[in-house]
């Protein structure tokens, strides 16, 4: 007798649990759909400011940047994504000075760990949230992020870090060397 009761109660509990499940899907049938309609929603799509998509070197209106070609970003990069090449020039007053030739960054290798940005002594590079970076060939992923003909921005503030780094510059960059200054990025005002 008990087994018969168990048989029927099992049957009805089972059916009711199934109907409960179906009621959930029925309700979901009418809920708002969550799929992002990319690329139609391009104009309304909000990508967080902090989202790391592309390494850029901000240039001002005079085509000047803040990179002193010290190579710290290159040394800090865990997998050799950044290659900084520099050249020595002589300034008007006769001093020898190292200036940036190319700052090359490989999107295909980058793990977006942000170490280059937080260790940069002159805040010359940052990650931008431009997310549409697909290209057709791999070689296009290797990008030169300093603009053509750009110069180092002359600022009193920046003289200091430039002078403080000669020790680092003297060393060959092949040897991985960490010069980390953990400089927490200030929260960007939303």
């Amino acid at each position: 007798m008990r087994s018969i009761a168990k048989y029927f109660s099992g049957l009805f509990i089972g059916i009711s649990s199934l109907l409960k499940g179906m009621s959930v899907t029925w309700r979901e049938l009418w809920t708002k759909k969550v799929t992002q309609q990319y690329p139609e929603n391009r104009d309304t799509l909000v990508i967080s400011d902090r989202f790391r998509c592309e390494l850029v070197m901000p240039h001002d209106e005079n085509n000047e940047h803040a990179c002193t070609a010290c190579g710290i970003c290159q040394m800090n990069c865990p997998n050799g994504t950044i290659v900084v090449t520099s050249q020595m020039i002589e300034t008007e007053d006769g001093k020898k000075k190292k200036i940036l030739d190319t700052h090359q960054w490989d999107l295909g290798m980058c793990t977006f760990c942000n170490l280059c940005v937080i260790t940069c002594p002159s805040d010359a590079i940052k990650f931008e949230n431009t997310y549409e970076n697909a290209v057709f060939t791999r070689s296009k992923l290797v990008q030169k992020i300093n603009h053509e003909g750009s110069k180092l921005r002359e600022k009193k503030k920046e003289v200091k870090p430039v002078e403080a780094k000669p020790v680092v510059e003297a060393k060959p960059v092949v040897e991985k060397k960490a010069v980390e200054e953990v400089k927490p990025e200030e929260p960007k005002a939303e």
Binding site: S48, R50, R52, F112, N114, F127, P184, E185, E186
Partner: peptide, 17 residues
């Protein structure tokens, strides 16, 4: 700035507030 690989902790604290 990351979704899956969120890259938040660093030695001594966190990277982003």
């Amino acid at each position: 700035g990351g979704r899956l690989i969120i890259n938040q902790n660093v030695v001594g604290g966190v990277m982003f507030d």
